[in-house]
Amino acid sequence: MLFRPKTFSSLAAGLMALLPFSVGAAEITHELGVTDVPDAPQRVIALEFSFVDALAALGVSPVGIADDKKRQRIVAEYTAVIGDDWQSVGTRKTPSLEVIASLQPDLIIADKTRHSGVYDTLSQIAPTIVLDSLGGTYPDAIEQTLVIGDALGLKDKAAERVAEHEAVMAELIAKIGNESHGVNAQFGVTNATGLWLHSPLSYNGSLLEKFGFSSSMTPQEGEVYETNYVPTTLEQLSVVDPDLLILGKYADPAFTDGWAGEALYDSLKAVEASNVYTVNAHKWSRMRGLLAAEMTANDVLEILTEFSGKQ
């Protein structure tokens, strides 16, 4: 670890106190390399909601969260476990490095897409591990929970919790049975100005696949907002034409609401058969992880019950 007393002089004392912990540290392999993490870090900062999900799954309370400066974005399901004794470190996109440093963390969990640029700076503040949350799939999110468990010195507990989660999911999938087979389902988020479909490469896409749905989106190459979260016009949506359209709406009226009444929109399979369902955009789109997937699964179960009833 590198300390720059000039830049972080005020922190030097605090960080020195943490040094003994780095003796016998665990080596954690992550997206941007290998980081020595002290045994059982106590002051953890999570820069994405899925990392909060992992902490909640493992019963660890963070000291700082990039909550987009809106505390309610850390939902009750999380705060029930991690409590309210954490500070906001700003937005996920541009978290405040000063606030992060002032919290004297001993582990920072950062996102590959959002925080690779500040990885060096974060690493100077505290051991930092970088995981692909925004660009990752559902299996990736599970894998990341295991990595975070490892970093927290809770390897066995994480494995146990993941096994528990998989049992819950297996039960839900058993309930779904083969109702989802051959059904083309598509999730997308819409705000006031556009629609973004979550492709099979995205977290939600892969989760729907796990539930047995299929997708007719053609995979794209490029960066996250081309491959995973694909901006989609009505004309492009009419090519995907899913049987089941699940929308998370960030605005009211949402952009897609403006399409109602247009001939092309009304001719979509999902619209014709009234199979457009609205879900909580925040829980589906921004949250990823074990707990989030279980919440999503319950929504899917409800949607599918209604969908099957119409067939």
Binding site: D68, T91, R92, K93, T94, N191, T193, G194, Y250
Partner: peptide, 14 residues
């Protein structure tokens, strides 16, 4: 652009 994701995306689009 440094504000919230959703807001930033709207402005960026414009």
């Amino acid at each position: 652009f440094t504000l919230e994701d959703d807001l930033a995306r709207q402005v960026l689009r414009w």
